[in-house]
């Protein structure tokens, strides 16, 4: 398994657009003012964290999925591959076999069941992993090529890369994809602590409850950060209080914050209260980290 030293914080949310990326980038930048930290963008369909940093690229590699590759010279056109594929990723059209790598789930059934080995599995490039450095901040992202849908393997690989490359960094922050589906579960399943970002609105509250359900399912310890605090109502706060869920911070609603975000700027350097909120979040995470050591 991964090393024991790095404390892994995943930042997630049910609803999109609540400020996950804002929190991840600002928190990572604040930590990097005093110690080494890794920020990992696992929203592989749409990794936007990088828009906030102008770092130096230190490493780049391809991400792959294994998919079957048709060897015409061996194929007897028996049709078994098409029959076994549950995803319509391989079809036979007369005398040719067509493989759709984007629909393929890499289950290997067609390849291994082919009686004449005419479908060897080969790596297909589906995106790139990039590792940037800016001062004490390491920023790692994986980006799927447009139209690729199989996100889970890239998420798993990115986590592995970070664990191997930065075993001695004490904190790593994982920006997760939105929603409650497989990619989210993959992104958060081995985090030591999860921060759920929400808005104090009916939509935010509804989606927060779904995210909380997911965290219970994964048996994760988690806390909530309320973004755009001041708009909406107290439903989220009352709910968290009633359920005994920690509210780590409230980030104020402000048009100026929206403007900074739209330009791709960090927030906390211009907003002391955001900096205080981030410090509180960090302190809470560190206390949990220490708690686990004891």
């Amino acid at each position: 398994m991964t090393n024991q030293q790095t404390f892994k914080i995943a930042i997630a949310s049910g609803k999109g657009g609540t400020g996950k990326t804002t929190l991840s980038t600002n928190l990572a930048a604040l930590i990097a003012e005093r110690e080494e930290v890794v920020l990992v963008d696992l929203d592989v369909e749409e990794p936007n964290s990088g828009l906030f940093f102008n770092g130096t690229l230190v490493h780049e590699e391809d991400n792959h999925n294994m998919t079957p590759n048709w060897d015409e010279s061996l194929c007897t056109l028996c049709g078994l591959c098409q029959e076994v594929c549950n995803f319509n990723a391989i079809i036979q059209l007369g005398t040719s076999i067509l493989v759709y790598p984007k629909l393929c789930h890499s289950c290997y059934a067609c390849s291994e069941l082919c009686p004449v080995n005419a479908l060897p599995m080969e790596p297909t490039q589906i995106g790139k992993l990039r590792d940037y450095k800016l001062g004490k901040l390491h920023y790692v992202e994986s980006r799927l090529n447009i139209g690729e849908e199989q996100a889970v393997s890239s998420i798993a690989k990115t986590k592995k890369y970070v664990a191997e490359k930065y075993p001695n960094v004490s904190l790593a922050i994982f920006d997760s994809p939105p929603g409650t589906s497989c990619p989210v579960m993959e992104a958060t399943k081995d985090a030591d602590y999860v921060i759920l970002v929400t808005e104090p609105t009916p939509f935010g509250f509804h989606d927060l409850k779904l995210a909380i359900e997911t965290m219970h399912e994964l048996k994760k310890s988690f806390g909530v950060v309320i973004n755009r605090y001041g708009i909406g109502n107290d439903e989220v706060i009352n709910y968290c209080k009633a359920e005994g869920i920690d509210i780590l911070a409230k980030i104020p609603n402000s048009r100026q914050i929206a403007e900074l975000y739209s330009e791709g700027h960090l927030i906390y350097p211009s907003f002391p209260e955001v900096k205080t909120a981030l410090s509180n979040i960090l302190e809470h995470c560190l206390s949990i980290k220490e708690g686990e050591r004891i």
């Binding site: 995803f87 319509n88 079809i91 036979q92």
Partner: peptide, 9 residues
Amino acid sequence: HGAGTATSQ
């Protein structure tokens, strides 16, 4: 998933 490929076939 893959309704498009199946219909093509």
